[in-house]
Design a protein around this nucleic acid. Structure first.
Lengths: 353, 353
DNA sequence: GCTGGCACTCAGAAACGTGGAGTGCTAAGA
DNA sequence: TCTTAGCACTCCACGTTTCTGAGTGCCAGC
């Protein structure tokens, strides 16, 4: 673990080793490394260097007479300083672009993006849906379903629709509901969801005398919905099944945990939320994510934005042995594309007369 | 395979054998069967009977000196005629009932039901969402998102909401959109989705002279959405990860296929649709479903209804070795509960003045 | 400081024996 | 005719042993 700087040669060697391991998935020995990478020194020399690298904690051998395998630290160094990330070809970008259905509502775009990620990387794709809090509120509608059930529909400026059934205390006629919605919309349209929510809380705390009765009802009903975390699934996952193909994930118990994580979504959610703040591409190698369930995996995450404002994160989850440079490029491009599509669609929703 | 009728004794024996195999998951031998089931004849007799059963194709031995294991045919006979399905206790029903959030919109109810199925059976739960075709159409709304994008919101009488973004040829003012929607609603509200869809097609085929211009626009825009299969996921799956726990599904390739099936959903979808017609609980054992991906599994499916009209199917997917009587009861009860919840919520949606 | 050589290690495959669970068959008993 | 005890047989599961090959560490010479 002595943190002496690596010589150029050992760096080169480490890089070659990791690349070979990523490609083949088997411990790489000195001889085969020399051959594969076309190195100009002998296996014996390579062995010496390997011993150094092992001492530094960058690689390790599964057992005495196997080759070497990168450690998390090794991967970390690799992605930090050794990666030759050639950006994707323009052609490939076009390919990706074509698969994102433009002009759709955000939910569909996001599902498409998730599918795209998993499909092209052959790993699992994850997209954190935009937080509604900062989105602009466009309009609300109340609709009688039956005697005591009212459907509330919330529309955001970007076209997201949120609906929920509530049971108001008293019964309203359709005309009343219509008017209540009109009043509500004229006051709150265009403000952000979070803003509206806060206003509603304040309005409820105030004396209701100050408000018209119907408006009071509207505020009460709307509050039930605005206060809600929302019914939409906050995380879209696709291609988990791709991970079954990797022999390194054959441990039943680990696999179980991993899939539970995809299902419960809690761990992934916090990881993505936390990486939303970071602003750029984030890479979590193995245990770095801090979640046990993700320990055998690496996560490549990138935030996406609408109009320059970061609203969510997308990511690819795969085994630590993954083609980092490829996946990083793909995640990067996809995040850009999604940002573009969403921004384009947000369209500064004018409801002008 | 000679189809001689089974004697009561061999039936009893088969039943005991299958039950024990389901409980323990290991081939059962004559001796242990006698002990476990408290039979009053000797292992030798049991062996003779077993030989008969094997000849009939109801059981088989994995190899010479292992016990016997049920075949698909055996399971089939078992569920057809041997099953002692004691209905669930009232307490258990209450337990299930409490976990279904009443008064929610259909989508949430369905997701809850799926989660419930997987959670209580420890297998995978699947719910086919109601087909919109027969649902009643309540109202439609057009909303400008930006210059050339209009959000169309469709509401069904049961509270389902469907939304989609379209790009109309020309630009409409909010007032126009409002009026178009009003006209549309006054004509079509209350009819079934399928009915409306057909009317729209007919209306479009007719000469547009006969229609007011704005109404014509409304019909065109609405048609884009009514004709659509809809953006909602037609199948809600939960608890796939539960299946990882079964040793009989440890075959990598089979597992892969199975999970792909859960992901692609095509196979499951057709299976459930097909069993919707059947009207009652349906059981597919192993290859009976006709889908290779589901071959190592059994599927217990039951349709659910709204107001007596069957609208969808729910199912549990697990290994062929599952506790059929338990799972059947659970599926049955859950289907009833879901039907109840949906029917209750459908509430004959009066939008009366 | 690099390299060839050499002894050493160790996982994994193949070969081998052994024990036990379970069977099929036969012959005696009910 | 049906049941059962007995017995020889089969074959998997498991532990042991052996063997092999890939790979290492180290040393001595260049």
């Amino acid at each position: 673990m002595s943190m002496v700087a690596l010589t150029p040669r050992s760096e080169r060697l480490l890089k070659a080793l990791i690349e070979q391991y990523i490609a083949e998935g088997q411990p790489v020995g000195s001889r085969s490394l020399v051959k594969q990478a076309g190195l100009e020194f002998s296996p014996a020399t390579v062995r010496n260097v390997m011993a150094d690298l092992e001492e530094m904690g960058l690689i390790r051998s599964p057992h005495t007479s196997a080759g070497r395998v990168p450690t998390e630290l090794g991967y970390r160094l690799f992605v930090n300083t050794l990666l030759t990330s050639q950006p994707l070809e323009a052609v490939d970008i076009r390919g990706l672009e074509e698969q994102l259905p433009l002009h759709q509502d955000p939910q569909q775009l996001i599902e498409a993006a998730s599918g795209l990620l998993s499909q092209v990387t052959k790993l699992a794709g994850v997209v954190r849906v935009p937080r509604r809090a900062h989105a602009g509120f466009l309009q609300l509608e109340f609709l009688n379903l039956s005697a005591h059930r009212v459907l509330v529909i919330l529309v955001a400026q970007d076209g997201q629709v949120l609906n929920r059934v509530i049971q108001p205390k008293r019964r309203y006629s359709p005309a009343e509901l219509q008017e209540a919605a009109n009043m509500f919309n004229s006051v709150y349209a265009g403000r952000s969801f979070e803003d509206v929510r806060r206003s509603l809380v304040r309005a409820l705390e105030q004396d209701s005398e100050a408000m018209q009765k119907l408006m009071r009802s509207a505020v009460e009903m709307a509050h039930e919905v605005f206060g809600d975390p929302g019914d939409a699934d906050p995380l879209v996952v696709s291609g988990e099944a791709n991970l079954l193909a990797f022999p390194e994930l054959s441990d039943r118990e680990k696999l179980r945990r991993l899939f539970d994580a995809f299902n419960a979504k809690q761990d992934l959610l916090s990881l993505l939320d936390q990486s939303m703040a970071a602003g750029g591409i984030q890479i979590f190698i193995g245990g770095e994510s801090g979640y046990e369930s993700l320990e055998p995996c690496s996560v490549i995450a990138a935030p996406y934005d609408v109009d320059g404002q970061i609203v969510g994160t997308l990511a690819v989850v795969g085994p630590t042995r993954m083609s980092y440079n490829r996946v990083i490029s793909i995640v990067d491009v996809t995040a850009r594309l999604l940002s573009g599509a969403l921004t384009h669609n947000a369209g500064h929703g004018m409801n002008d007369a």
